[in-house]
Design a protein around this nucleic acid. Sequence first.
RNA 1: GCCGGAGUGGCGGAACUGGCAGACGCGCGGGACUCAAAAUCCCGUGUCCUUCGGGACGUGUGGGUUCGACCCCCACCUCCGGCACCA
Length: 801
Amino acid sequence: MDRYEPGVIEEKWQRRWADARAFEVSNDPIQPKSYVLEMLPYPSGTLHMGHMLVYTIGDVVTRFRARNGMHVLHPQGFDSFGLPAENAAIREGVHPRISTERNIDAITRSYRRVGWAYDWPRLTSTHQPDYYRWQQWQFLRFLERGLAYRKAAPVKWCPNDQTVLANEQVKEGRCERCGAEVESRLMEQWFFRITDYAQALLDDLETVDWPESIKARQRNWIGRSEGAEIQFRIDELDEDIAVFTTRPDTLYGATFFVLAPEHELVPRIDSDEVREYVRRASAKKTAERAAATEKTGVFTGMHAINPVNGERLPVYVADYVLTDYGTGAIMAVPAHDQRDFDFARAFDLPIRQVVKPPDGDVDESVAYVEHAEGEVLVNSSDYDGLPAPEGGRRIVEALAADGRGGFTVNYRLRDWGFSRQRYWGCPIPIVYCEACGMVPVPDDQLPVHLPEIEDYKPKGVPPLAQAEDWVNVACPSCGGPAKREVETMDTFVDSSWYFLRYCDPQNDAAPFDSAVVDYWNPVDLYIGGVDHATVHMIYARFWIKVLNDMGMVGFREPFAAFFSNGWVTLGKSKMSKRAGNIVGPDDFLDRYGADACRLNILFLGPANEDMEWTETSVEAMNRFVRRLWSVVNEVVERAPAGEPEGGALARKAHATIAKVTDDIGRRFAFNTAIAAVMELVNELSKDRAGADSRFAAETAVSLVQPYAPHVAEELWERLGHERLWESPWPVADPALLEVDTVEVVVQVNGKIRDRLQVAPSVAEDELVALARASEKVQAFLNGGDAARVVVVPGKLVNFVL
RNA sequence: GCCGGAGUGGCGGAACUGGCAGACGCGCGGGACUCAAAAUCCCGUGUCCUUCGGGACGUGUGGGUUCGACCCCCACCUCCGGCACCA
């Protein structure tokens, strides 16, 4: 027998697959179809074990579904624009285009080496003009519908990356990418009107097959809360100011009124003290503001009229009120809100209780914020004595009748700010004309190419502004002097529709053909890390809903099912470039081959949970593959050909087929499927020349193919067959799943006392008689008999005394 | 604070619908092969007790339901993750 040499057989089979175009699929609408997709990578470094995991999961599912008769689309590409790629380029000191394309080449070579089954001709990178051209085209459609707009707003600014960030890119007040503390700046920016879709994004979560934890995150993120909007009059400004509250029942308890420092009416307050406070507040970092323990603020000298009772409430400006939640203004009810309570204490403002708890007692050192059964309103005029929820309802109804308020729903979700002051991104196809104002670039002038420039580094103003030849253009409308938009799009725009382009990547008349996209989509299984669960996956859902409203796609949700893979950890922290604890697969691919590495990453543990990387487990998988190799080769030499005889080994093989099919097909339990094949190989190794050995060997090879496709193809060929990748998945014979004897457990009072080998068909009374006859059981029955006998056929007999 | 998830041998984990706890693998112990080692193969491996037949205990803690609970219910502890001055 020849030695197992992974390098040789892997190269051989990768060439065969390429020559046979094994994983390239047509767009013919063949059913059943399956679109298997993993989140596309940033080409910002080399492969690591995290990639190894995600793409191997997708590959196993792809190969499994293909052999189960499905027309499977499994494409790949690169999220090659944006901060990750650009920052990598700056680190390497090369132009982003050079660095990106170099990385793409390197990563693609690694991919091929692992033997992942991709439809390579569909490979798409988002920095390619024929990709971003259609993104610009879609942006213009969003613009026409008012779903893309430009406005001045307080935005999150990363002082390190020198760009605006979306809310979704800020974690705990820090830039998601570089960790710098984020500042608030008032800037004119581009936004997508995702808030129009807040309710749809929430509702349609019911229609997708995603892990509950991921749905919960999105619900958290969207942050729906029901309440009321109420108008307070400020005579000094001659304005009605709206507040949002979830507690209209506490309206009679309002004793002051607060505006966020960024509230649009604050600049109209003529007060040096207020101006000074606003200046200091805006200088604070976002995280600093959130962490403040002491409440600060300043009295404006103005008063707001409480619409229910005409009380004049002093108006403060304080930074504990956030500009980007609700209306940026609040009615303050210190008795029933801890933050208002703290402020009232600090500024010596009155605290008036209006909700009485059921037991009547209140701890006056804190706000009473419960929602207990039996609470009633007090100090609330006509509403006194009403249960709090009902009182709140009536108060809002009364306000609505006066046109001073009404029920409303508020969302935490903000519009998606998508313009970036960076070079490496999709140009926004807009021109500013001195005469015509903002003018969209006409479709037939797309794409607006990203120009090559020398100095692309971030410096606070968009680098494109310096590309004068590019910036200065003739207005598409009047032909007069005009300037291009110099900001670029967030990379999350690129990743909001890439999976549609994969379906029709060569299309040069449209972003995609709707019929083709509607055939393949929605994605049947989307695989990726939980870190994109609230950002990318909300944006993509929004994008698809808009395209659906435009009639461009026939579905409302992009990802019908989602598998959230765990993180590969080393020393218990996530393996990542940032943590500096990356173990690359290349070394292991050299030492053990692709098959052992692929098996290993899925055998480490359940793929949807974090898994600690260990080197010894790759060695174990290497042992397993070599064992499979030697056992099967010996079977080829020694075992007789012909029909299996249906003995114990054949039965084991059929049981393994059933187990592996269920584990991969239904449970995504990739680790236990491998364990089942190991069991089969262990059995086979004890009987390498029997009548059933050849069948067992073929079964083991066939079942391990999604994980270890190269060695499986090679052994399959040696067993006298060909093209395992397109051979039908084995089917378990129900007759052979029946076993000839089963072990029945005999319990006395629930404790196991004996085990019997019986035919599965044995009658219940006969089984009980057999069990009762057992000496061991007799010893525990103490001469008496059971008060009750529980029988589970084929499983157990329990004598209850 | 609100929301989601998880606690099982020395370790990673298995037990899918309430019915044999610890599959499979790692590690460890013993043995075979070898001058020796590596590799490979075989046997053993939850804890405690044992007259070696077996027995008792055992899935974070305390209760409950059930003939029977890792699994269901109640309360709690610990850990991980998301959101959070969100009105």
